[in-house]
């Protein structure tokens, strides 16, 4: 069945890591958008969205990811997606966002263990 969205933020030296688990869809996407808008960023930092636990992402979810990207760029910061599940990776490829986002296949290579 549908699993609710859960998010946690932790700070690292390279920048904040936002861990997303559950389903990111029309009902839950606004939650993520509100959360990312409150994350403080500055030039040189990188916001990492850890999607390893994300079970579903529809077009509203994609919009939330793009909103996070706009938020990072507005602050002069960078953004990357880590541990993108195969299903979401396929969606990102379909909409061409694999070339817009920096995507890391696993979380270790981008944020360490």
């Amino acid at each position: 069945m549908m699993s609710p969205l859960k998010t946690t933020v932790r700070e690292t030296a390279a920048g904040p890591v936002l861990e997303v688990t559950g389903e990111l869809d029309y009902t839950s996407a606004p939650e993520l958008r509100e959360l990312t808008a409150t994350i403080t960023l500055r030039p040189g930092l990188r916001l990492v969205l850890d999607l390893g636990g994300m079970e579903f992402c529809d077009s509203s979810g994609i919009t939330a990811l793009l909103a996070a990207r706009s938020h990072a760029h507005a602050a002069g910061a960078d953004i990357a997606l880590a541990a993108v599940p195969a299903h979401t990776l396929r969606v990102l490829r379909m909409v061409g966002l694999d070339e817009v986002f920096t995507i890391h296949p696993d979380r270790e290579s981008v944020i360490g263990s």
Binding site: I62, L66, R93, M94, V95, G96, L97, E99, V100
Partner: peptide, 14 residues
Amino acid sequence: TPGGLLVGVVPGAR
């Protein structure tokens, strides 16, 4: 039609 970008994200999209 692989690689076509979501419309409206970046200027000059492919």
